[in-house]
């Protein structure tokens, strides 16, 4: 079974993120890491491979230096990586990103495409559904557990109201929730081995995407303006001297919240 895992390089969690006022895009300089919840998708792919055999291929769209971040997932045990790196892809919105990823995934010809939960750099939980539509494959999202059967995959989707068990024939697209597993740490052997694993860097042209269909040119959403968020106003801090409950009640009543 061939499993493709879509992963993304994001600014490291410890870095103070900012938006470049000139381009109105997220400033992507500085330390970078793999999107933390993508590791859950990598882990799930490795578990499926360990049980059923096959290959785990990382698929990513990003700058050329993203290969460094991909190496961490290779060290965890993924077999190879395909990175679509193209200056023409900078500034892509959901349409361009999903088009490029779908193109790369078609090249990989995976039986199962896995995504992690929403990325930590501001991308909403929307990419997989767009990719599934472009690939014309069934979709299971927000999967808290997965079971691979004979030519099928069954996932337990977490929703606002409970759980839905959803089954789909392969090939399929699945987005896993971060509750699905605990990603493993790469072993020393894995880290050493990652450097020699195949890493392919390809262009938008290689995945059949025209220059005008990705990047800013292909985007149908725009960023108009950046401003400060609405302010919270003054805050009050008190220490409980036995009357805190009464003070909370007074505060809430005064603001007509009761």
């Amino acid at each position: 079974m061939k499993i493709a895992v879509c992963v993304k390089q994001v600014p490291d969690a410890t870095v103070h993120k900012k938006i470049d006022p000139a381009t109105k895009r997220l400033d992507r300089f500085g330390e970078a890491a793999l999107n933390p919840t993508d590791l859950n998708a990598v882990e799930e792919a490795l578990r499926i491979k360990e049980a059923a055999g096959g290959e785990v291929v990382l698929v990513s769209l990003g700058p050329e230096k993203a290969v460094e971040s991909l190496r961490k997932a290779l060290a965890m045990g993924a077999d190879r990586a395909v990175l679509v790196a193209d200056e023409g892809a900078a500034g892509s919105d959901l349409l361009g990103t999903s088009r490029a990823l779908a193109g790369a995934l078609e090249r990989v010809e995976a039986d199962l495409v896995l995504f992690g939960q929403a990325s930590s750099d501001g991308d909403g939980a929307v990419l997989w559904a767009a990719v599934a539509d472009r690939l014309r494959r069934p979709l299971i999202s927000q999967a808290a557990s997965l079971e691979v059967g004979d030519g099928t995959i069954t996932g337990k989707r977490q929703t606002e109201h409970g759980y839905d068990v959803i089954s789909a024939p392969l090939p399929a697209v699945v987005a896993v929730s971060d509750a699905i597993n605990e990603p493993r740490y790469p072993s020393l052997k894995g880290i050493m081995g990652a450097k020699t694993k195949p890493q392919e860097t390809i262009s938008l042209g290689d995945v059949g995407v025209d220059a005008g269909a990705a990047g800013e040119a292909g985007a149908k959403t725009t960023v108009l303006e950046l401003g400060p968020p609405p302010s919270r106003g003054d805050s009050v801090k008190i220490e409980d001297d036995g009357s805190a409950a009464q003070k909370i009640l007074d505060y809430v009543v005064e603001r007509r919240l009761l």
Binding site: L95, A129, A130
Partner: peptide
């Protein structure tokens, strides 16, 4: 959970900005 998947699928289907 449901609406996000519907909206994103529709964006790809119609080539519409989301």
């Amino acid at each position: 959970v449901l609406s996000a998947d519907v909206a994103a699928g529709l964006a790809a289907r119609l080539e519409a900005g989301l």
